[in-house]
Amino acid sequence: MSALAQDLALLLLDDTSGRSTVDLGRRHRAVGSAVLLDLVRAGRVAVDRPEGDPKDARPVVLDAAPTGDATLDRALSLLTAKDRKLAWAAENIGHACWEPLMEALTDRGLVRRQEGRFLGLIRTSSWPAEDTSYEASVVARVRAAVTGEADGGPDESTVLLVMILDGIGALPAVLPGEDPRAVSERAGRLVAAHREHGPWAEAFKGLDSALITVLFAG
């Protein structure tokens, strides 16, 4: 299941307007990275990082069989269609998978689709919140992780959320009321402490600051 990507997409939506709280470029890279991580954690994709420049890293499909999750299946179809570098894959997967992610969140009753028109001509879609209780629980996990209040430490999914949100500079918007600089510093320490542990780090061959820069630069 595209659990990480769904949680991230929910956090990047404004509850009232239903629109993205970050520009589309950052949203695509963040969501695409989350989908890739969901695929890595499911054993469907690995990242091949040749020696040298991390910009040469590429996602490699290990198992292209349907997953039953529309978001993950869309991403797998893109990855199997053409060999691309990691940053390109994240950007394009994020763009292509936004609609299936929104459909999944709508099916869960967390958002609702709202149609409109820009300048009376161009059709637009937004996804205002329908039920904010689940999103509140995700925000609480992220806040506890970066403030050090999580009992026993944060779980893997929460660490990955913090990594992605910090990578695109979205943590202050997700955690209003917290000092932005302090939040970013604590997030950096948290990610560094967990980088060498867990199956996601192994699958990403030791995800480090260089690869994070590739994913979120721009």
Rank of each mutant, 00 (worst) to 15 (best):
C97I: 08
I93T: 14
L37E: 09
L37F: 07
G148C: 06
P100E: 03
V174T: 01
R123Q: 13
P176K: 00
S20Y: 05
P66I: 05
L211S: 00
A87I: 08
G169D: 05
I122M: 11
I122R: 10
A192T: 14
E185H: 01
P172V: 00
T80Q: 10
V183C: 00
Y134R: 13
V35R: 05
A3R: 14
S125E: 10
I93Y: 07
G68D: 06
A192I: 12
V22G: 06
G18S: 03
R19D: 13
D23A: 13
L13N: 08
R189N: 12
I212K: 01
P59M: 08
D151I: 12
A217C: 07
G18L: 03
G169E: 04
R195Y: 01
L215Y: 02
K85E: 15
R195M: 01
T213L: 10
V142L: 03
G18P: 03
K82S: 14
A150T: 11
D56H: 14
H194K: 13
L211Y: 00
A46T: 12
D151G: 11
R117E: 12
D73Q: 05
V159T: 14
E156S: 13
A64E: 15
R74Q: 13
T80G: 12
E156C: 09
V142N: 05
D7E: 15
G188A: 05
G68R: 03
V139H: 02
D131N: 07
